[in-house]
Design a protein around this nucleic acid. Sequence first.
DNA 1: ACCGGTAAATTTACCGGTAAAGTAAATACG
DNA 2: CGTATTTACTTTACCGGTAAATTTACCGGT
Lengths: 349, 349
Amino acid sequence: MKKRVKLEDIAKVVGISKMAASLAMRGEGSISEETVRKVKEVASELGYVPNHMAKSLANGKTNTLALLVSAPFHDDYQNQIIHGAVPYAMSRGYTIFVGPMASPSLESSYIEKYKNNMVDGFLAFHSLVSANYRKLKAEGVPFVLYTKYFRDLDCDYVVCDDELGGYMMTKHLLDLGHRRIGFVYGAKLKRSSEVLDRIKGYRRALNERGLDDGERSIVPFHLHYHVKQMNSENILSDNREFVAWLTAADRPTALFVANDITASSVYIALKKLGLRIPEDVSVGGYEGVYLSSVLDPPLTTVETSIQQIGEKACQILIDKIEGKIQESAPVQLRIEPRLLVRESTAPIR
Amino acid sequence: MKKRVKLEDIAKVVGISKMAASLAMRGEGSISEETVRKVKEVASELGYVPNHMAKSLANGKTNTLALLVSAPFHDDYQNQIIHGAVPYAMSRGYTIFVGPMASPSLESSYIEKYKNNMVDGFLAFHSLVSANYRKLKAEGVPFVLYTKYFRDLDCDYVVCDDELGGYMMTKHLLDLGHRRIGFVYGAKLKRSSEVLDRIKGYRRALNERGLDDGERSIVPFHLHYHVKQMNSENILSDNREFVAWLTAADRPTALFVANDITASSVYIALKKLGLRIPEDVSVGGYEGVYLSSVLDPPLTTVETSIQQIGEKACQILIDKIEGKIQESAPVQLRIEPRLLVRESTAPIR
DNA sequence: ACCGGTAAATTTACCGGTAAAGTAAATACG
DNA sequence: CGTATTTACTTTACCGGTAAATTTACCGGT
């Protein structure tokens, strides 16, 4: 195995100092066109590849970001974030570490990596605890949250306009004639900003028609991520509140489920209860992931451009890192969602 | 912002040379217990965090791996690989770059990163071209393939025992009395090792009953990844061969679909054709991703422990990098799958 | 008192870049 | 024509570690 080619080798061939070669390669400083040409020629002849570690060590910048993703995730939400962020980052010369937060402690340990000089900043799908990020902010470490933000911490984020999305879906159901519209959320996501905002939009729409009854029509749902065998009895016994409500005389005629994957579980539960979608109950979802399109019937949902969220978040992060965004006020973006009407919602009978 | 603490700072406090501090921190060389204790104490007091870049530059090892994942992927297959690999890697002191192969050219450009001294090795879900990996092998760069391997390149890999899986599913369908069993694969995956092996198992099972009719019952299926609106007319018009076959007099009574996500599209097509699952056609899938459990009816599938594949592949890669595996013969692992019988397959009527 | 051996460090050099300051020759300016 | 400014580099020092060679001190044995 022949030794790696380094700047010095090029310099020697061209007959200049390694510093001149360095400048020539980067097109900085004042180096004659002639020399630049020669250096680049020799570099490609010798197959020169810059040593990233040396570069990073020298200028204290790694051109690397950490992308913290949620776990477990069984739809393609996080995939799409990755697909939005990574290629964009590449196009700007950055690589991305992906950190699935299999356990809460992992989140902190990823964040520790920053301290090792491994990354220049974070893209984060945060867990409930804001402490980690409060610390990052205090230390001036660049980070951008995606999909959900902290209500008690002012920082950069890119999210879907969930309040609007919540409003749109509820409006859609109201327009179909539904009056008893339930809101169902995955029990574990209880108080995430995205759920809270969707609820806000939901209640605003109800309010406009004087139908808001507070928290009463908002119920949690325990979903089964690891349904390997279809022992779907569990799905009913684990959701007594939900079942009681759906079998009551004044059961809701429509359900707005906080996200598609939860909706997929709700579908199973409704079918178990003998309720047809949409004849007996209309169901609306949120996210617009692939999953929603293969459910039977195809799920009406609020589609958010997930890839765009990933890309935008990445863009903001890099801009901040490179000082292209100066204002001290945080960048807070809300991407407008789109109502995607399919076959799981129908006029009330 | 106060300056980072470095080894020299610790050394100065303890009153030794920075080299001694370095050795003490790593527990190498011969440093007195007393000194080691003191160094570690001071280190934690001062909040010392080693500089990863400096370390890497000095010893030519980055403790970083690249994980190349496929794209687009709309189920949780790649997620599970990530979840298998990343935490395991962390536990051995490695971090992982994730590279979605949004375009074929990206694959090469990720591989180039190795040359920048950015990673010690690769975990790869390869595209069809073996050239890249042939080159890696020639250069002695460690890499482990997962899920699919090259038939024309002898290297390390961890895959599902797809021949066995194919056999198991086909046997299951035969045992249910089916005699005309079609094999359906995603048109784009045509000749990947995993599909070929599943076909091999499928044909072996058929052969045992003298039912193998060669390639005739093996048809491609064009699936719709981006079904945003449910214009599922396309799904039929894009799959004329499939439709013709399923509407013929001697249509298959069972379909073995090469993977769950394709099966989800096949479901839609079958429903469009007015064929009930499993009453009219039994359908079997492969992979056992979450998606398969929320389809209606829940899909009978061949479950492979995807996370385990990710973890194993990572383990082998790290072992190779660290020289814990010496034999020159490649490590080639086949993880045994499990038949997961749900409701999409039933005895022939 | 002399020797080899070893524990506990230290010194030197290097990994492969970059920033900052310095220099020599060419060009511009009043 | 002499000085200021550019242009095109070079030199020096440093980023924060590590490997390898070297030093120092102490030990028991003869």
